[in-house]
Design a protein around this nucleic acid. Structure first.
Length: 351
DNA sequence: AAGGAACTCAACCGCCAGCCC
DNA sequence: AGGGCTGGCGGTTGAGTTCCT
C-alpha cells in the first residue's frame, strides 16, 4: 500500500501557472494568509492546484521581496563557501542570501556555479606537477600527553551545525564562522601540551583568489596528506580525508593578491626550546612555498578539492577552531608589504 | 534559415521530520 | 506509543529558449 496522495491528482492542474492563477493565489494569501494549511488553501482560493504546488509558487515566485536575475560576485562567493561547508543544503544557503530562493540557488549552482568550479580544476591539476610536497616535519612532541579528543575538548569554539568540511565564508569580520569567543593561547598552554608539529603541506592544493575588492580578501586553503597530524587527531575526518583547510586571509597585493599562509606556532612554543627552531623552519618553509607556489598569480575563487574532486565530503562534522591554529601568519607573497594574523579552522569528527 | 544540441529554470516528485490526535 | 497528515526539502524533469553548426 502506497502513501496517500496529497491531493486528487486527477482534478488538479499541473504545469506552468497562468497570470490569472498567480493573481488568485496572491490575492488570497495577501487577504487571508496561508491559514497554516497549504493543502486546504487551493480549494478556498478557487484554484485547481495541488496545495504543494501553491506553496511552491508562492515561496519561489509570488511572495514579496523575491529577487530574480543575475547573482553578484559576492553571492557567488557565499554560495561557493557555504556549499563547500554544508553541501547542498539550499534552504540554509538561501537563508544567507536575502531575496533568493533555495530553488533559484539550486538551479544557479547546477547550471552555472558547478561549471565554473569545474573549469577551475584543470588549473590546479596542472599546477600540481609544479608543486611537489614540501617535507617539513620537525620532531613531533610526545603524543602521550594528548589525545585528539582531549585536545579538541579544550577548544572552545564549536559550531552549531554539521558540516562535511569547512571553509571560511569570510568577508572580514562578518565571517559566518568566525567567532570571537575564542580560547586564548595562554589559557590553553596551561592545560594543553604542545601542539602537533607543523603540517606537511602540499603546495599543489594551495589556493587563493585574486579578489582585490574593497576588503582585499583572499581565501586560502591547504590540503594535508600523510601528515603527522593524523597521529594526533586520528578521529579527524579532515585527517582521514587528507584535507585541511584554513579560513581566509587578507591579501594586499595590488597585482592581484597572490597569497599564501602558514601556521604560526610561535606563541605555542614560547616556553619551549623548540621555539626558535620552529620559527626558523617556518621561515624556510614559507620561502619554499612561496618559491614553488607563487611564481604566478593564482586567479580563481577558492574552493575545496578532495582527491581532485569537488564534491562535498560525505560525513557529519562539526567545526571547531583548534586553538593552536587560532592564529597563523598570512602572507601575500610580498615580503615587504603584508603579514596578517588570521584565524584558522579545522574540522573533526564529533562522536 | 533550419535543425539539433545545450542550456535554463519553473515545477513536480518523493522522502522525511515534526506535529497532532 | 503510533499512525496519519502536513510542510519542508533536495533531486529531477521537461518545456521553452538560446546557441551552434
Amino acid at each position: 500500500m502506497g502513501r496517500a496522495p496529497c491531493c486528487d491528482k486527477a482534478n488538479v492542474k499541473k504545469g506552468p501557472w497562468s497570470p490569472e492563477e498567480d493573481a488568485k493565489l496572491k490575492e488570497f494569501i495577501e487577504k487571508y494568509g496561508t491559514g497554516g494549511n497549504w493543502i486546504a488553501l487551493p480549494q478556498k482560493a478557487g484554484l485547481k492546484r495541488c496545495g504543494k504546488s501553491c506553496r511552491l509558487r508562492w515561496l519561489n515566485y509570488l511572495r514579496p521581496n523575491i529577487r530574480h536575475g543575475e547573482f553578484s560576485e559576492e553571492e557567488d562567493r557565499i554560495i561557493f563557501s557555504l556549499y563547500a561547508s554544508i553541501g547542498s543544503r539550499w534552504s540554509v544557503i538561501a537563508a544567507q542570501l536575502p531575496g533568493r530562493t533555495d530553488n533559484d540557488i539550486k538551479n544557479y549552482w547546477n547550471t552555472k556555479l558547478k561549471k565554473k568550479l569545474l573549469t577551475m580544476l584543470p588549473y590546479f591539476q596542472e599546477k600540481s606537477s609544479f608543486f611537489p610536497p614540501i617535507p617539513f616535519q620537525p620532531q613531533p612532541p610526545s603524543k602521550d600527553h594528548l589525545t585528539s579528543h582531549q585536545f579538541l575538548n579544550n577548544s572552545s569554539s564549536f559550531y552549531t551545525f554539521s558540516t562535511p568540511n569547512f571553509m571560511n565564508v569570510d568577508n572580514t569580520s562578518n565571517s559566518l564562522f568566525v567567532h570571537e569567543e575564542h580560547t586564548n593561547v595562554t589559557d590553553l598552554q596551561s592545560s594543553v601540551p604542545p601542539p602537533p608539529p607543523p603540517l606537511q603541506l602540499h603546495a599543489n592544493s594551495l589556493m587563493c583568489n585574486n579578489n582585490t575588492d574593497v576588503n582585499d580578501n583572499c581565501y586560502s586553503s591547504y590540503s594535508m596528506c600523510n601528515s603527522p597530524m593524523q597521529e594526533y587527531y586520528p578521529n579527524s575526518s579532515a585527517m582521514k580525508e587528507g584535507m585541511f583547510m584554513f579560513g581566509s586571509g587578507a591579501c594586499s597585493s595590488s597585482e592581484g593578491g597572490s597569497c599564501m599562509g602558514k601556521i604560526n606556532y610561535g606563541d605555542y612554543y614560547k616556553d619551549h626550546e623548540e621555539k626558535q627552531k620552529y620559527q626558523i623552519k617556518q621561515e624556510e618553509y614559507q620561502l619554499a612555498l612561496h618559491d614553488h607556489a607563487l611564481g604566478g598569480q593564482v586567479q580563481s575563487q577558492s574552493f575545496m578539492l578532495k582527491n581532485n574532486h569537488v564534491t562535498p565530503l560525505q560525513n557529519d562534522l562539526e567545526e571547531v577552531k583548534l586553538p593552536n591554529f587560532s592564529n597563523y601568519l598570512f602572507h601575500d607573497g610580498d615580503e615587504n608589504k603584508t603579514t596578517h594574523y588570521q584565524k584558522g579552522m579545522c574540522s573533526y569528527d564529533h562522536y
